[in-house]
Amino acid sequence: MTVSTPALTRTAGESSHSGAYTLALIAVASFAMTLPATKALTGMLSAQQIGLYRAVIAAMAAIPLLWLARAAWPRREQWLSLAIVSGGNIFGFPLLTSVAMQYVPVSHGAVIVAAMPLATALAAAVLSGIRPPRRFWLYACSGTLIVLLYSLWQSGAAGLYVGDLALVGAVLLGAIGYAKGAELSQQMPGWQVISWVVVLSLPVSLPWSVWVYTPGSLSQLPTIGWSALLYIGLVSSLLGFFAWNKALALGGVARISQVQLLQPFLTYGYSIVLLGESWNWLTAIVCALVIGVVWLSKRQP
């Protein structure tokens, strides 16, 4: 007979949390390219085309994956939750960020999207009834404030843009989708959650994408345009969620969502490597502060 000891239980829990944070970092690193890739498509495709084409591409990739895995169809009681995830992560966030990128620079978009971790924790608290301790909220709000102030300084934008409302809506809907997706990931594998979400969205996304299609909009896309579209379709809308949903299920929505505070810094890092933007020490210092806040929030029960 195997006897479970507190030490063994603690070790297993720590291992699980470490795995959750590793998966979260992989997901956030992939999500950090979403705004730059979406921005690259502006002027080539409309906001609706960008948001809908990426959903159809994700669904076309998910269908064979579900078929090869012989995944069971979602239960009837799970359909509403899948619809909520679809509304937030397949239609809400992609379409609204595509609209926003028509009006604001990527760096300014990072200012608003930086609130996503806090919004996700709040959504999880409301939807699941789980109440993290007050100290967790202190760390979450502190991390969000640090990132917002830094992002505002980085973008040099103190005023409001037309795209801000779209970004706020994207954050709210995306956070609800994250929270519901994590809840479903307790009932089925995380990769199946997002795969079923994009596939079951196809009856809406496919006709809608045909409706907004304009002759030559895809055939005339340059290589960089196709690269950006395939990235947000395959990685931002599908593969990134494989790791993200699993991480949220393993480590808890409130705690793991705080890893996304690092996303603006990864976005800036990509801009340095890919766009040749300049490096500054303030970025490294603020990033270190955010990592400290995430570490402190990780220690909360």
Results as ranks from 00 to 15, higher is better:
1 M>F: 13
2 T>D: 14
4 S>T: 15
16 S>Q: 15
19 G>S: 05
21 Y>A: 09
22 T>N: 08
23 L>S: 08
23 L>I: 08
24 A>T: 13
25 L>R: 05
26 I>T: 03
27 A>S: 10
29 A>I: 12
29 A>L: 14
29 A>V: 08
38 T>I: 07
40 A>D: 07
43 G>A: 05
48 Q>I: 09
51 G>F: 01
52 L>T: 01
53 Y>V: 00
55 A>K: 05
55 A>L: 05
59 A>N: 04
63 I>S: 07
68 L>C: 12
68 L>A: 14
71 A>E: 10
73 W>A: 13
73 W>L: 14
75 R>D: 13
80 L>N: 05
88 G>F: 08
91 F>L: 05
96 L>P: 02
97 T>Q: 02
103 Y>W: 04
104 V>Y: 08
105 P>H: 11
108 H>M: 11
109 G>A: 05
109 G>P: 00
111 V>L: 11
114 A>Y: 11
115 A>Q: 05
116 M>K: 10
117 P>S: 11
120 T>E: 03
123 A>T: 01
125 A>Y: 03
126 V>L: 13
127 L>W: 01
130 I>M: 10
131 R>P: 04
132 P>H: 10
132 P>R: 12
133 P>S: 09
136 F>S: 03
138 L>S: 10
143 G>I: 06
144 T>H: 10
145 L>N: 05
146 I>L: 15
148 L>F: 14
148 L>Y: 12
148 L>R: 06
150 Y>K: 02
152 L>P: 08
152 L>C: 07
153 W>P: 11
154 Q>D: 13
156 G>P: 03
158 A>D: 10
158 A>S: 14
159 G>H: 14
160 L>S: 02
164 D>R: 05
167 L>A: 08
170 A>T: 11
171 V>A: 06
173 L>R: 02
175 A>P: 07
176 I>L: 11
177 G>Y: 00
182 A>R: 03
183 E>R: 06
183 E>A: 10
185 S>I: 00
185 S>Y: 00
186 Q>H: 15
190 G>E: 01
191 W>S: 02
191 W>K: 02
195 S>F: 10
198 V>H: 03
203 P>T: 15
204 V>A: 09
209 S>Y: 01
210 V>S: 14
217 S>P: 09
218 L>P: 12
218 L>F: 09
219 S>H: 10
220 Q>L: 11
223 T>G: 15
224 I>Q: 15
227 S>K: 09
227 S>V: 15
228 A>T: 12
231 Y>D: 02
233 G>F: 00
236 S>V: 04
236 S>N: 07
238 L>I: 04
238 L>K: 07
238 L>S: 04
239 L>N: 04
243 A>V: 10
243 A>F: 14
245 N>H: 12
246 K>H: 08
253 V>M: 06
257 S>C: 02
258 Q>L: 09
263 Q>V: 15
266 L>F: 13
271 S>Q: 11
276 G>T: 00
277 E>C: 14
283 T>K: 03
287 C>K: 12
289 L>Q: 14
290 V>M: 04
294 V>C: 06
295 W>F: 15
296 L>I: 03
296 L>V: 03
300 Q>C: 09
